[in-house]
Design a protein around this nucleic acid. Sequence first.
DNA 1: ATTTAGCACTCTCACCTCGAGAGTGCTAAA
DNA 2: TTTAGCACTCTCGAGGTGAGAGTGCTAAAT
Lengths: 343, 343
Amino acid sequence: MELNKRMKTILAAVVHRYITTAEPVSSSIIAKEYNLDLSTATIRHEMYWLEKYDYLWQPHTSAGRIPTDKGYRFYVDNLMIKRYLKENEKREIIQIYKKNKELEETMKITSQLLSKLTHNLGVVLAPIIYDDLVRNIQFIPVGNNRVLTIIVTDTGLVCQKLINVSGEITKDRLSYLSNLINNKLTEKDINIINLKKILKDELDKILSFQERFNYIYDFLEDCLNFKSLKNKVYLDGRTNIMRQPEFNETIKLNYILSIIEEENILANTIRKCLGFRKIKVIIGKESKLKEIQSCSLVTSKYNIKGKPAGAIGVLGPTRMDYSRMISIVEYVSDKLSDILSEF
Amino acid sequence: MELNKRMKTILAAVVHRYITTAEPVSSSIIAKEYNLDLSTATIRHEMYWLEKYDYLWQPHTSAGRIPTDKGYRFYVDNLMIKRYLKENEKREIIQIYKKNKELEETMKITSQLLSKLTHNLGVVLAPIIYDDLVRNIQFIPVGNNRVLTIIVTDTGLVCQKLINVSGEITKDRLSYLSNLINNKLTEKDINIINLKKILKDELDKILSFQERFNYIYDFLEDCLNFKSLKNKVYLDGRTNIMRQPEFNETIKLNYILSIIEEENILANTIRKCLGFRKIKVIIGKESKLKEIQSCSLVTSKYNIKGKPAGAIGVLGPTRMDYSRMISIVEYVSDKLSDILSEF
DNA sequence: ATTTAGCACTCTCACCTCGAGAGTGCTAAA
DNA sequence: TTTAGCACTCTCGAGGTGAGAGTGCTAAAT
C-alpha cells in the first residue's frame, strides 16, 4: 500500500486545492493548476488508486475527489510543508501580550487571538494549578455569617469562594487568621493540594486552645473545594465555525452546536488526548467525540516555568489549513508559556 | 383605526396560534380551533382589514397571516393575558439560588436559568457598581515589579488587576499600605468612584513624608481603572436561538451570529433602552440594532437593596411567547434582587 | 511498460412544466 | 351583517429534460 512519489504529489495537490476552495477537485484542475506535466487521464488513473486505498473519495461519480480523514492524516504526517508565521503576524501576537494582564484576562485574549488568526474556534484550557504555590489567602466578611475567601497563587490565579459560617467569626478574628496563614505561606512553599492538610497542622500549633473550634476546620474544608480550579475553558469565535460552507445544512450544524455551548465536553476531550508530543492533530473520525467527527482539532500544550500547565487549540472543519493552524497554535502557545512564566 | 372587539379577538388568536406553530394562520384554522362561531369568510374579512391596518401580513396570496411587529405590540400591550409561573417552576428557580455563590457565579447561573426556562438566549448585565462600598483592598506582589490588586465591594464583587510598579515596593510595605486603607474603609463608607480621591487625601495625612513617593499615587491611579467594572455580560443558550425554525436559512442566521459573539453590542443596546418601567419589551424593528430586528427582547431591571443595579433579558424570535417570557424574566429578576441584596 | 486521446457512461444541477392544494377576495344571496 | 360559493392566485412537490462535469475504460501512441 506504499504510495509512489507521483501519488503523493497528487494527494498533496488535492488536499491543497480542497483546503482553499472547499470544492471537489477534478483531474483537469490538478493538471491545469499544478504543472505536473501529466495528462488528466494519468492523474485520473492515480486518483482511482488513491480512492481504492482510501485516501480520497467522491461524493458522486461525476464529481471530483475529496480527501478522506486518512488522506488528511497522510498529508499532515508526510506531505505538508511546515510554514512559519510572517514577521508582522508574530509582532501582532507579541503586541497583544505586551500589556500586563492577570490570568483570567490572559486566557480570554488568547482564545480571541486564536479565533481571529485561524478563523476557527479558539479553545484555551486554563492551567491546572495543583502545583501552584499559594501566595496569599484572604478572608473577607460579607453580610451576616458569610465569608468571601480569596486565594492567590504564584501563577497569578485568583480563586474566590463564598462560604457560610455556622459559628460567629468576627472581622478581627478573620484577619488574625489570614495573617497567621499568610506568614506561614511566606516561610514555606505550600501548594494548593497540600494547603488543607498543612493549614490544619499549622493552625493546631499556632492557635490557642479556645480558638481551635471545629467550625474553623469545617470552614477551611469548605474553602478549598474550589470548583473553578479545574475545567475552566475559554472559547472564542463560535460563529467562525458556523460560517464554514460545510455546515450550511442546518442538520450538520446542529450536531456541532451542542459542543459549542457545552464548553466542558470539548475541554475534556482535549484533556484526554494530550499525549507526549507538544502539538497534536486530531482529524475527523480519529476523535472519539461523535459531535466533532466532521472537524479537526489542533492542540498544543503550554508550560509555566517549564512545567506543563494547560493546553490551547483550534477546532475547525477537517478541511482546514493544517500547516497554518499548526504554526499559529505552536507560536501562540510558546508566547503564552513565556507570559505565564514571567509571573 | 380603532380595532373592534372581534378584530381584537381574531388578532389574539392569530398571534397565539403563530407563536405555537410558527406557521402562517389561515381563516379556517381560526374558525376551527378558536370557537368564535364565525364563518371563515367573516374571519377573512376581518383579517383583510387587520392586514390593511398593518397588524398582519401574508408571505404570499395563498398563505395564512402572520403578525407584524405592530401586531405583536398591540397584543403585548392590550390583548395578552398575564400568566404566572407554576409553583414547581418557582421552586426550581429558588432551589438554584439557594446555594451561596459569589457574584460572578450568580450572574452565570442566572443566564443559564433564563436560557433553560425560555429556550432562548439568556442575557445578564452585571450590576453597575459605582455606588458599591469598598469593603476590602489587597495588594499582593507577584513576580518582579508587579502587584496584583484586588478590590472587594459590599455587593460581593471581586475586581482584580495586575499593575506594573515602576519603583520598588516590598511586600511589607504593600501590606502596610493595604492595612492603612482597609482601616479607613472600616471607618468611612467609601464608594468605588470616590475611592481614588479619598485614598489620595487620606494617604497624604497618614503616610510619613518619605513614604509619599509619587509612584504610590501613580500606582493607585492605575489600580482604579478597572475595565471589568462595567460592561460585563453573561450569555447562555446561544444555540437555542439558532435552532428556531425562522433562522433555518443560513443568510438570516448569519445576521444574528455577530450579535451572539459580540456580547457587548447586545449589552449596550439593552442598557440604552432601559427606561422607567421595570419590564420592557422591544419587538423586532422597534430596536435600533439592525442585527436583531427579526428578534424581540424582553428585559427587566433588578435591584440591590432597592437601588437599580443591572438588568437581565431574553432574546428570541419575534414569534416568542411574550406572556411566558415576561413572567419568567420578572420572577427571575425579583429573585436575583433578593439574592444580591442579602450580601 | 507507460502514458494518453477518445469516448461512452453516470450523475448532478438548474430549469421547466404541471397539477394538487391552500387560502384568499369578491359577489350575490340569506 | 353574515355567509355560501366560486374564481383566482400562489406555493410546493413531483416528474422530466438537457447541459455539463467528471469519471472509467480501452485502444493507440510513445
